[in-house]
Each structure stands twice: as C-alpha cells, then as structure tokens.
Design a protein around this nucleic acid. Sequence first.
DNA 1: TGTCGTCTTTGTCCTGAATCAAATTGAGAT
DNA 2: ATCTCAATTTGATTCAGGACAAAGACGACA
Lengths: 258, 258
Amino acid sequence: MKALPFVRVLTPCDRCAVRKTSLCNRVNVGLQKELAKLSHHRTYRNGETVLAEMEATSFVGIVVSGVLRMQKSLEDGRQQLVGLLFQSDFFGRVFGGLSDYAIEAASDVTLCCYERRAFERLTERFPELEHQLMLSTLNELDAARNWMLLLGCQTTPERIASFFLILCRRSGADGWTPGASLSIHVPISRRDVASYLGTTGETISRVIHEMTRKGIIKIRNASDFDVLNKRQLVTMSGRDDLAIRPPTAAHSGSASSF
Amino acid sequence: MKALPFVRVLTPCDRCAVRKTSLCNRVNVGLQKELAKLSHHRTYRNGETVLAEMEATSFVGIVVSGVLRMQKSLEDGRQQLVGLLFQSDFFGRVFGGLSDYAIEAASDVTLCCYERRAFERLTERFPELEHQLMLSTLNELDAARNWMLLLGCQTTPERIASFFLILCRRSGADGWTPGASLSIHVPISRRDVASYLGTTGETISRVIHEMTRKGIIKIRNASDFDVLNKRQLVTMSGRDDLAIRPPTAAHSGSASSF
DNA sequence: TGTCGTCTTTGTCCTGAATCAAATTGAGAT
DNA sequence: ATCTCAATTTGATTCAGGACAAAGACGACA
C-alpha cells in the first residue's frame, strides 16, 4: 500500500450524504474508485420489499437515507423484526446466496447498491474490503446476541425501557447527564417496535403511558418523546450496560448497536 | 496460489480429531503450517469459565471436544444462553478486544487455541483465513437471528419442539424419513436448555412429558430421547424450515445452525 | 374543511407459563 | 451397597401480558 500522489478524485460519491460514515470511506482510494464504478442508487417507498425472505440476494449495498427493517416470519404469519438498518449501514447477505430474512423499507429509502457477485469479486481483490465487512458483521452479531438477551429474559417494560435507552444513545446523547431531558424520535411504526421487542402494540402503548405517569418520559406525539429522567429509565430497563456509550469506540465498525 | 510439490507435512494437527471438519482444513497448506506453529491445547472442566463476559479476549480457537456455551447475563443474575459451540466450531471474539458474552465449558472440553493478536496478524497475511472466519461469522449471524425469531414469537412448546428438530438435524438425520425413529442426545443440562430457550426447567419438563404422552418422543433418560414421530414434531414446532436440511450446503462454513 | 382509512389508545377478559414448594430420581463418593 | 447432594419431576398458585373489541386520534387527500 504505497503513498498516492495527491489528486482530487471527484466522483458522485464525493457528494454522498453518507460518505463520511460508511464502509466506503474506510478503504483506500483505489478501492473507493472501484466501488464507485459499481454503484447505483435505488429508491423504495415505505413498506416495499427490497429483498424477500429466501430470495437469492442479487445486490447488496449501503443505506443512504431512511430505515430498512430485516424481518423473519413464521408460516402462520407471526413476524419478528431481527434488525434495523440506518443511514450508512451495510445491507444484504454476501457470500452465500439466499438471505434468511426479508429486507423491507421501514420508511422511504434511498440505497446505494452493488451487484452482489461483482461486489464479492471485489472483496477477493481487496482483502481490506472484506475486513471492513467482517468488522461490521461482528458488530451485528454482538447486537443480535444482545437482542437475544432482551427477548429471552427481560420483561416487556424492561424491553421498552431498553429500547428507549438505545434510542437515546443513537440521538448522540453522549455522556451521562442524569438530570437533563432529551428528545428522541422513534423512526418506525408502533407495529414494528412491537415486532422488534417481541410484544404487541397494545402493550407498548400501555407501558409508555405508564412511563408518562411516572414522569420518566413525556409524549410529544406518537413517535416523539422527551426523556425526563434517564436514571429512572435505566433502572426500569434493568440494564446498566445501556446507560453508557458502547464500551470503547474500538469497534471501528458501523453503528449496529441496534 | 501455485501448486505445491507433494510432500507429506506431518504435524500434531494431522492427528487432530477435528482436522477434517474445522476451519484449519479449509485453508492452504502453507497457512496450515503457520496455524500449527501457533496452536496449543487447553482443557477445561464442566462449568469452568474460558473467557468471562467483558474480559479482554486473549485467545481464540477451535473446539476439539466437548461443548462450550456462550452466555450473557443481567445484573440481577438472569442469564441467556446465546449460543453453543461444538466440535470443530471456532470460538472467541476476533478484532475488538472484549467479548460481549462469557464462554464457559458446558461439559469437559479440549480446545485448540491461538493467541488472539498473533491470530489476527495471521489474517492480515492470509486473507483466506479471514474469509473462512467471515463465512462462519455470517452463519452464526443467521443462526442468531433465527433464534431471535424463536425467542420473540414462538410459544414454549414450539421452542422445545424446534430445539429437538435441530438436535435431529445435528444427529445426521439426513433426508426426511416420516416414519423412522431416531435417537438423539441432549448434550447440555436442563438448566442450559431452559436458558437457551428463554424458559424454565420446570416448563421444559412438563412439555417433554406431554410430548411423551402424545407419542411424539420416548424418554430414555434425562438427556436421551427417541423421536418417534417427526411429522408431529414439525407440526408442533410450527416451523417447516427446520424439517429439512440447511437450504444448500452452499454455506460452506461451520455448523452453527444451532 | 370534511371525509376516509390507518394507526394508536383504552377496556376487558383469559390463558400460558413463571414462581414457589415438595417429592423423586440419579450419579458420584466412600 | 448406601449415603449425599444435585438435578429433575410433579403439583398448586399466581399474574404478566396477549387477544379481542371498540373508541379515538391523526394524516392524506380532495
């Protein structure tokens, strides 16, 4: 990896909204250009399916704007949301054909896509690319196991409090400010939250109003809240680990704490 | 990657019980020798901790014999088993210091270990090694999400039936033999099964005996069963996807369907 | 500004599965 | 063989939270 002469490479990517934070900014310039050549944008409306469950993955990519949900379903229609993908997160199942879950637009979205096979060939030429993928996959795995803990042994109020804490963290509420109030936005529907937390919309509604009664939060509208008392929220969640920032920013991967 | 002259490289690894099926057999001979130089064995007794939750990962490796459990816990002591590792499975968190979960011996185990940093340096020199890791990490991620579905929206009897089906699959019960009976062995304690399935020992006991009453299984002893009626077991699990072998063996990675 | 359709909230009921407690079985040690 | 301790089973009770139903709020669109 020798030093490159200073030349400004102007591709559409330079104007990309997620350039700064996404995978493609963490690799060398040569690879960036290759990626740029391969990329194309796609847009989906809220609710549309990007890749169906058990469908062969024809492309992978990065979320430019909006939110994607990954979800699995049972024959009888029950559904579980197994992950959310935000701006600059990588999506799609590389190396191995069919994705185990559906990817759907949880809002209107714009995606920066790469044809899957071409992308995989690129990882062969550039181990660096595979390494970045590896890092974010490991983070996703940690997140998934964290969610198993939540689904497997927390009560519904605890799950909801945990979810709110994660939202706080995402809102860039750095540090620990016990007294301060913080407004957070829930970027997905009540139904999706319910499916994510393994509960029902009705129960969420009840718990949220109970939290209001206790002065932990204030409801602005169906998807915006003020957190009035973080300490209580942490107590309610039963999880000290969610009170603080991710251990070290050492995991240089993507967000995926979700 | 040029052809190598035919020389028989005899290292201790050649006698290794898991040689045929583990990661180290899926890489080229040069790398195999490097790995062999780095490896050392460790043994743990049932119940001992291999790596504690939030402890810096000093080594990674492969399970030679026995079963490891990965588990997370809440401050108040509740625990969730987030994965099991069997013979020839890779364990340990590479790239990023602390592991999010504890790794404990669920039986007496023998592990083939590599000092973590040295192993990571090897992945830099041999992208092939990182690729193999990537494949098994992706499989683990799929498995984790599959488990989220189980924990998030299946009933307890469904979970137990699903668990039994997975055990059937592991027992090498290939193909779909509706009538045949198959004996399976549960390699972990009732308590671990309960923690894995997000339920309690008592409930498991009740459900298992109910299954016996219905003629779905026969209890040999606390950890051995005969499956008498797979079709009913599948019906009970509510999951057709567990009835068949993993989609294609295309995921050339490790088992990890667990 | 009114109407429609969807999303959310509230009320009531009821069941699945956790909890607590006691009896039983089993495996290892002496 | 028998004792001991732990693991499992069985029983009784309780309640968290799911299901169903109906009312209310909100946003889209004309």
